[in-house]
Structure formats: C-alpha cells, structure tokens
C-alpha cells in the first residue's frame, strides 16, 4: 500500500482496491490503479463532475460491475460480490439522491436496516413470531435512539414521504448506522443541503468516526472536504490524480488543473443538471 500519506500514522486499510476498471462502450469511466481507505479515518473522494467518482463508488459497493480489478474489505477478498452481501460484511452505502422509502414510517425505515432479523425470512416470519418479536423490541429501542440522535424522534410514526430533503439525508444516515457498518460510504452527503444543515451533517459524520466507524465519502466541494477529512483522494478522468492530506492534495498542481474551469458552484447550471438527467 503506497497510499498512506506522510504525517499520518499508518493503519491497516479497511478497504483497498487494485486495477479497477469500468468501461462504457469506448469510454473508460473508471481506471483506478491503487486505492485504499485507512481504518478509523474519514476519507474524501473528490474530483470534478464526470471524474468517475460515483461510478467507482457504485462498482466498489456492488451496484455496478467492474470490467477488471480486485478489492478487499478488511483483508477479505470481496471483488464482484453482490451489493447485499457487501452490506452484510459491514460496507454500507447511502445514495447521492436521497432515497427514503416513502411509504414506510421513519421507524420502519430504520428498523429495516437492523441486521440479522430472523423474521425477515419467510419461515421465520410465520413460525418464529415470538423470536422475531423479541428482536423487534430491542431493535425498536435502538431505532428510537438513532432517530433521537438525528432529531427525528418526533416523526417516528410518520411515513418518510413527508420529510424535507435535509431530513431525508438525516434519516438515511440513521438508517445506515442502524446496520452497524464498519465502513460507511456516503455518496455526496452534502449535495443540495442548506449550509446550516451541512454543519450538522459534518458533526454527525465526525461523531460516527469517533464511535469507530470508518467513513468514505464522495464530494466535489473542496471546502467541505478540507476541515473534516483525514485523507483525500482526488479523481479526474476516471483516474486517481493525487492522494494525501487535504492540504497536500489541494496544493497538487494536477488537482488544481483538474478543478480549473469546473468550479464548485456548477450545481446552479441547468445544462449540468440536464446533462446528468437528474432532478435537483
């Protein structure tokens, strides 16, 4: 592993990847030779739009297939595992466009993430009622705590569809934490969130790290990244340009070049939105 930046203690990587490639027709969207996330850190994956960050993220989490490459979680080979199995191994992701399960209540949203619920099997649901009810009671207690931690306890019984955009971000974090991840992957957690909430989210992320969960998050706003990340990996044109501390990466001339002309405020540009084919 060459990715441990100077000035930091070297810890064993919780996630490492080698030679990961993803092509669409003639276009190579992702071509990452080396990538690693040190355990217990907050690592930011940055880069201008179209750099291949989200695609790389999707490949690592089993939501897209890789054309080449290998990656390991805590030293275990997890290359090409389906998304649900990666999640069970402790690698849980969120989505760029927050996706709450609108018809389920907030509490159900969080309960869904509880690992090892025996009532989720058809046999268990029908014949192990007493057993899963007990589990459910414990899980509900934890779910309430998590909702309270994110300030959503008042709405626990309401369908998630009524939440505002920012509240959905919080719910998604609460849900992801319910699954007790060892590595939490956040896809642009700050996108489309008002500045006040950004601070709250950043505090939550720091607290998650403090509890021992490693965090990898995708972000294209460098300012957000600077004061929260331990490590920064910058991607452009599908490749890793630079790896290091926030200060190191931001001084890197290649990184500055990559960001020139694609400023961070381009969310307001309608052509950019349309090009991504997404709603704001």
């Amino acid at each position: 592993m060459t990715s441990s930046p100077s000035g930091h203690e070297t810890t064993r990587p919780i996630l490492s990847a080698q030679g990961v490639q993803r092509r669409f027709g003639g276009l190579t969207a992702v071509d990452v030779d080396e990538f690693a996330v040190r355990g217990g850190t907050i690592t930011a994956l940055i880069g201008p739009n179209g750099a291949g960050k989200s695609t790389f993220f999707n490949v690592l989490t089993g939501f897209d297939r890789a054309d080449a490459g290998a990656w390991q979680l805590e030293g275990r080979e997890v290359t090409g595992l389906p998304a649900y199995r990666l999640a069970r191994q402790g690698m849980v992701r969120t989505f760029q466009l927050t996706r709450s399960l609108a018809d389920l209540t907030l509490e159900e949203n969080v309960l869904l993430a509880a690992p090892g619920q025996r009532g989720e099997g058809i046999g268990g649901a029908l014949f192990g009622r007493r057993s899963w009810r007990r589990q459910e009671a414990d899980n509900t207690e934890r779910a309430r705590e998590l909702l309270a931690r994110f300030g959503l306890e008042q709405m626990a019984g309401q369908p998630a569809g009524v939440l505002s955009g920012g509240q959905r971000k919080l719910l998604e974090m609460a849900r992801a934490l319910m699954s007790e991840p060892r590595l939490l992957l956040l896809d642009e957690p700050m996108a489309g969130v008002n500045p006040r909430l950004v601070e709250t989210l950043l505090d939550h992320i720091r607290q998650v790290r403090a509890e021992g969960t490693t965090i990898l998050f995708v972000e294209h706003d460098m300012d957000v990244v600077a004061d929260i990340s331990d490590d920064v990996v910058c991607m452009a044109f599908g490749r890793v340009l630079a790896t290091g501390t926030p200060a190191e990466v931001m001084r890197d001339p290649e990184v500055i070049d990559a960001y020139l002309g694609s400023d961070e405020a381009d969310d307001d540009d309608p052509a950019h939105l349309a090009g991504k084919g997404r709603q704001p």
Binding site: T61, G62, F63, P82, A83, Y84, R85, A87, R88, V92, R93, T94, F95, R99, L101, A102, D103, L104, E108, L111, L112, A113, P115, Q117, R118, G119, E120, G121, I122, G124, A125, L126, R129, W132, E136, R175, A176, S179
Partner: peptide
C-alpha cells in the same frame, strides 16, 4: 412481519434495500 417490511421497502426502492444487505 419483518418479511413484509422488506417487500414493501422493495416496492419503494429496491436499490436502497439492497444497500441495506437484503
């Protein structure tokens, strides 16, 4: 049951449910 919660969640958004290990 929890099984029912999973399938209702799948109708809402299958990818989220996959991301949660189901």
């Amino acid at each position: 049951s929890p099984w029912g919660r999973v399938i209702r969640a799948i109708r809402n958004d299958e990818e989220v449910v996959r991301a949660l290990g189901k």
